[in-house]
Simulated assay, not measured.
Amino acid sequence: MTDLGHNLIFGSFVTPAVSPPHHAVELAELSERVGLDLVTFQDHPYQATYHDTWTLLSYVASRTQRIRLSGNVLNLPLRQPAVLARAAASLDLLSGGRVELGIGAGRFWDAIEGMGGRRLTPGQSIDALDEAISVIRGIWDTETRGDVRVEGSYYQVEEVKRGPAPAHDIGIWVGAYKPRLLRLTGRRADGWLPSLPYLPDGVDSLTEMNKHIDDGAQHAGRDPAAITRLLNITGQFTDTGAGLLVGAPAQWAQELAGITLDHGISGFILIGDDPYAIEVFAAEVAPAVREIVAAERRTSGTAHR
């Protein structure tokens, strides 16, 4: 996998902490003010110290004008897909087309079950995600005649009216790590949204994981290059380099540009709630990455998507 030529996206990954109540909102507003493209929030509905992520997304949408919004990633086992589809479409319409849909198959099953969700095996959760994507796309597809009908093992939808259609083609971004879910991402999703700290072999993992996505896309007759690859990242700004994303902004820029050019990653989302880091990431790292990647694309003739 090499550079796919996608537009670069830079964003923040904010903790939806309840205390103080407006801190997450303020970080979202900061993210917009300093020029980031995207603000995202993790989603753990069973966590009492966190805001409900969808409520937070809706509130942030009303407090911002330009920045795009997404869960990172929404907990599908506790968010019924037909309702989620309509909620996303409504918020997209109200926000002027600024919503993306990051979703996950579920991880913390004790907590999910404690909140009334159904405990699933890893394989079942992947099948459920596949069915959920069918439900969501069916709700959004107002050009097809007839009602939405999905006769799945986990989600059964019958005689459901289509709509509303979102303001733009909302991207369905899947958080995935294992081969089967990666292949599903290639087969059904618009984007891939993993976290660097969870990659088993760090950046080196991207080669094999991208291959699974590409295989899934090809078997479904899709162009693998159509799938956006994003990455949640963490690091530290320091005067001297001490490893990947531990160093000066110029070092970060070189390293992130390399990940784009070598692995096709076009979205970088900074994990953390440090306002200073968000400002530096937006003001110094993002422009430098764009410049390095643009120069290489001009040299190599990479087609821009």
Rank of each mutant, 00 (worst) to 15 (best):
G117H: 04
Y198N: 15
H263L: 10
Y46N: 04
G114V: 03
A189C: 05
Q236F: 13
L120D: 05
L93I: 12
L74M: 10
E29V: 15
D147I: 04
G202Q: 00
P275E: 04
A286Q: 02
Y155F: 14
G5N: 02
S90C: 10
W54T: 11
K161Q: 15
Y155S: 01
G35A: 07
G114I: 04
P122T: 10
Q124F: 03
S153M: 12
T228P: 13
K161V: 13
L74R: 06
T144W: 01
E131F: 04
A28C: 05
V160L: 14
I67S: 08
G264M: 01
L181N: 14
V99A: 04
D201A: 15
G35Y: 00
D130T: 07
A220M: 01
S12R: 01
S19D: 14
K178D: 12
A286P: 04
L101R: 01
L206N: 11
E100V: 03
L8H: 09
G5T: 05
G146I: 04
S58P: 05
Q251C: 10
S95V: 01
H304C: 14
N232Q: 15
I213M: 08
R229D: 06
R229I: 09
D190K: 10
A48I: 09
A165N: 01
L78A: 06
I269K: 02
R297S: 10
D43G: 13
P21G: 09
A226N: 10
D190H: 13
V73Q: 01
D3H: 03
A242V: 08
V83A: 10
G216I: 01
